[in-house]
């Protein structure tokens, strides 16, 4: 289904599969359009793999932070009524979704 990528390296991103992981039903047209674009981007960003980072610690936060927490106290939230106002579909204060089949 996926078209040939514009560059050889771009083959490693499988747009249809990644779209499935991200829960986006892309059309064939979209997949065909995104495949070379993302292939090109992946080829570009792969440049960082050329750096030797074996001894470098990863940075997860832009700044040093630690131990930020709150006391175990309650804080007023939203009423069910207010929460339901934004709900695309609701019933008896439940958010309604298509039938879940387990």
């Amino acid at each position: 289904m996926s078209p040939e990528p514009s560059q050889p390296g771009g083959a490693e991103i499988d747009v249809a599969y990644v779209a499935h992981l991200a829960r986006m039903h892309l059309s064939d047209e979209e997949i065909a359009r995104f495949q070379p674009q993302l292939g090109q981007i992946v080829d570009y960003v792969r440049q960082i793999q050329a750096l030797d980072t074996s001894d470098v610690e990863p940075t997860a936060h832009a700044i040093e932070i630690r131990n930020v927490a709150r006391a175990d106290t309650r804080r007023e939230g939203l009423s069910a009524d207010v929460a339901m106002r934004n709900a695309p579909q609701s019933k008896d204060d439940f958010f309604v979704v298509p039938k879940i089949v387990e």
Binding site: D72, T73, R74, R75, G77, L78, S79, A80, D93, F94
Partner: peptide, 27 residues
């Protein structure tokens, strides 16, 4: 057995009315 939720101040009481212990964080 905490009084409030893990990441927000909503109550953790059992068997409360549906969606009555919610806030922008836990929604």
């Amino acid at each position: 057995g905490t009084s409030s939720k893990m990441f927000c101040g909503c109550a953790t009481d059992f068997a409360a009315a549906p969606n009555s212990q919610v806030c922008p964080v836990c929604l």
